[in-house]
Amino acid sequence: MKGKAALKTGGLIALWIVVALFLLFPFYYAVVSSFREGSAIFEASLWPANPTFANYEAVMTDQPFAKNILNSLIVAFSVVVLSLGLATFASYAFGRAKFKGRRLLLYTILGVSMFPQVAVLSGLFEIVRLFGLYNNLLSLVFSYMIFTLPFTVWVLTSFVRDLPVEIEEAAIMDGASSWTIVTKVFLPLLAPALVTTGLLAFIAAWNEFLFALSFTLTNEQRTVPVAIALISGASQYELPWGNIMAASVIVTVPLIVLVLFFQKKLVAGLTAGAVKG
Rank of each mutant, 00 (worst) to 15 (best):
G3E: 12
G3H: 09
L7S: 10
T9Q: 10
G10W: 06
I13F: 10
L15F: 15
A20I: 14
A20R: 06
F22W: 14
F22G: 08
L23D: 12
F25H: 09
P26F: 10
E37I: 00
E37G: 00
G38A: 01
A40F: 02
A40E: 12
E43Q: 10
E43V: 04
E43N: 13
A44E: 10
S45K: 15
L46H: 03
P51T: 08
A54E: 00
E57K: 11
E57I: 02
A58V: 00
T61F: 08
Q63N: 09
Q63V: 08
P64L: 13
F65K: 05
I69H: 02
I69T: 11
N71S: 11
F77M: 14
L84A: 07
L86Q: 00
T88P: 04
T88F: 02
F89M: 14
S91L: 02
Y92R: 05
F94S: 05
F94I: 07
G95F: 07
G95M: 10
R96E: 11
K98C: 04
K98F: 13
R102M: 06
R103H: 10
R103T: 15
T108A: 15
I109K: 02
I109F: 11
G111C: 09
V112Q: 13
M114H: 03
F115T: 05
L121G: 00
L121W: 02
L121T: 01
S122V: 15
G123I: 05
I127H: 02
R129F: 11
L138I: 03
L138S: 14
S139T: 07
F142M: 15
M145F: 06
I146V: 10
F147D: 04
F147S: 14
T148W: 08
L149M: 11
L156T: 04
T157A: 11
V160M: 10
R161T: 08
R161I: 13
D162I: 01
L163E: 01
L163K: 01
A170Q: 13
A171K: 01
A171I: 05
I172L: 14
D174W: 02
S177A: 15
S177V: 07
S177C: 12
T180V: 12
V182N: 03
T183G: 06
L190I: 05
A191P: 06
A191M: 11
L194F: 11
L194S: 06
V195F: 08
V195N: 12
T197A: 12
G198I: 03
F202G: 01
A204T: 13
A204W: 12
A205R: 07
E208A: 10
L210T: 13
A212W: 05
L213R: 12
S214D: 00
L217M: 12
L217A: 08
T223P: 07
T223S: 09
I228T: 01
I228P: 01
L230Y: 13
G233H: 08
G233W: 10
Y237A: 15
G242A: 03
G242L: 01
N243T: 00
N243Q: 14
S248A: 13
S248R: 00
V253I: 13
P254M: 03
K265G: 12
K265S: 09
K265L: 15
L266E: 02
A268Y: 02
L270V: 03
V275C: 04
V275E: 06
K276V: 15
G277M: 10
